[in-house]
Simulated assay, not measured.
Amino acid sequence: MTRAIFYKEWIKLRWLLLAISLVFAGSIPYFILNLTNKFRFAGKPHFWSVIVGKDLNLISELTYIPLLAGLIFGLSQIVPEMQKKSLKLTLHLPHPEKLTILKMLLFGSGTLVSIFGITGLVLYFTLSIYLPLQIIGAWFTAALPWYLAGLAAYFLAVWVCIEPVWKQKAINTLLAIALIMLFFKGASTYSLQYATPLYIGIILLSMCFPFYSVFRFKEGVQQ
C-alpha cells in the first residue's frame, strides 16, 4: 500500500516536482555568476570586507523561495483531492486512515527535504571554491530558517486545505500565517540560530494539525 500511495502522489505531482527542482537548481549558477561578477568589479579583498562589515548575504534572494515551494506543493497535493472529492475515497481504502495521511505527508515533506538538501549542499560546496568556509557557514546559518519555513508551510497548507469548515479554515489560515512569520523575525545572520529548536517544534506541531482536520473531514463536520 505504501508503494501505491507514493506512486499516486508521484503521478499527481511529478511535473510540479520537476519545476521546483529546476528553480532551486537554477539558483546555483545564478548565485555563482553574481558572485564572480562582484569579484570582477570590486575585487576580492574589498568585497570580503563589505561582506564582513555590512553582514552581506549573497544568497538572501532565496529567502522566500522555500516558503513558496512548500506552500505551492501543499496546495497542489491536497486541492485536487478536495475538488474531485477523492480524499474521502482514499480515506475509505482498506488501510488505516492515519497511516494513509502520514504516508502522503511523508512523500511531500521527504521530497521537499530532498530538494532543499541536495541543492543546498551543491550550492554550499560550489561557493566554498570562491569564499572562506566561515562566510559561507554564516550565510547558510541565516538561510536555515528559510528552508524550515518551507517545510512548515507545506504542513500548514495541507492542514488548511483539508479543514472542512470555512470559518475554521479562515482561523487556521491566520494561525498558519502567524507561525510562518516567526521564521522571518531575525535582523542579522546569527540572530535566529538559537531559535532552531523552536522552529523544529513548530514543524512537528504543524505535522500533527492535518490529522485533526482529517478526522473532522471524515466525520462530516459542517459547523
Results as ranks from 00 to 15, higher is better:
Arg40Ile: 09
Ala19Asp: 06
Asn172Asp: 11
Met1Val: 12
Lys8Gly: 07
Met104Gln: 14
Leu179Cys: 09
Thr100Cys: 12
Ile177Tyr: 09
Phe31Cys: 08
Leu205Asp: 02
Phe140Ile: 06
Glu61Ser: 15
Thr126Ser: 12
Arg14Gln: 09
Val221Gln: 02
Thr196Arg: 13
Ile162His: 03
Leu67Asn: 05
Phe217Val: 03
Trp159Leu: 05
Met1Leu: 06
Lys84Trp: 15
Ile203Trp: 03
His92Leu: 14
Leu67Phe: 11
Gln83Cys: 02
Pro197Cys: 10
Leu68Lys: 09
Phe41Gln: 15
Leu175Ala: 12
Thr100Phe: 11
Thr63Gly: 15
Val23Glu: 07
Ala25Asp: 03
Thr119Lys: 15
Leu106Gln: 04
Leu151Asn: 07
Val160Pro: 00
Ile59Phe: 01
Val160Ser: 00
Lys12Gly: 07
Pro197Ile: 11
Pro96Ile: 15
Ser86Val: 05
Ser128His: 05
Pro132Leu: 10
Ile200Phe: 15
Gly74Trp: 00
Tyr212Pro: 01
Ile162Thr: 04
Ile59Ala: 06
Leu133Arg: 13
Phe24Ala: 00
Gln222Thr: 11
Gly201Thr: 09
Arg40Leu: 15
Leu204Thr: 04
Thr119Met: 09
Lys103Val: 13
Glu97Ala: 12
Leu121Phe: 12
Lys38Met: 15
Tyr190Cys: 01
Tyr199Gln: 12
Trp166Lys: 02
Ile136Asn: 13
Leu67His: 09
Ile171Leu: 05
Gly220Tyr: 03
Tyr147Glu: 10
Leu156Tyr: 04
Trp10Ile: 05
Ile162Gly: 05
Gly70Trp: 01
Tyr194Phe: 08
Gln222Met: 02
Ala42Ser: 14
Pro94Arg: 02
Asn57Met: 06
Leu71Gly: 03
Ala42Thr: 13
Ser21Glu: 04
Met104Cys: 14
Gln168Trp: 04
Ser27His: 10
Leu75Gln: 14
Ala178Ile: 09
Ile65Thr: 13
Leu121Gln: 14
Glu81Met: 08
Val160Thr: 01
Ile115Asn: 02
Ile59Cys: 06
Leu105Cys: 07
Thr2Pro: 08
Val158Ser: 03
Trp166Asp: 00
Gly186Lys: 04
Ile118Tyr: 05
Ala143Tyr: 02
Ser188Ala: 12
Lys169His: 01
Leu22Tyr: 11
Leu91Tyr: 13
Val113Arg: 02
Pro197Thr: 14
Phe211Pro: 09
Gly186Tyr: 04
Ser188Trp: 08
Val79Trp: 10
Phe155Arg: 04
Thr189Gln: 13
Ala157Gly: 05
Ala25Ser: 07
Leu112Asp: 00
Ile162Ser: 03
Ala149Pro: 04
Asp55Ser: 13
Val50Asn: 10
Pro45Lys: 04
Gly137Thr: 08
Phe24Asn: 01
Ile177Ala: 10
Leu89Trp: 13
Ile203Gln: 05
Ile28Asp: 03
Trp166Arg: 02
Leu93Gly: 00
Tyr124Ser: 01
Phe6Ser: 02
Ile200Asp: 08
Phe155Leu: 08
Trp166Thr: 03
Leu123His: 04
Ser21Val: 05
Ala143Glu: 03
Leu33Cys: 04
Leu133Ile: 12
Ala42Lys: 10
Val165Thr: 02
Gly186Pro: 00
Leu198Asp: 07
Gln83His: 10
Ala176Met: 00
Met1Cys: 10
Met181Gly: 04
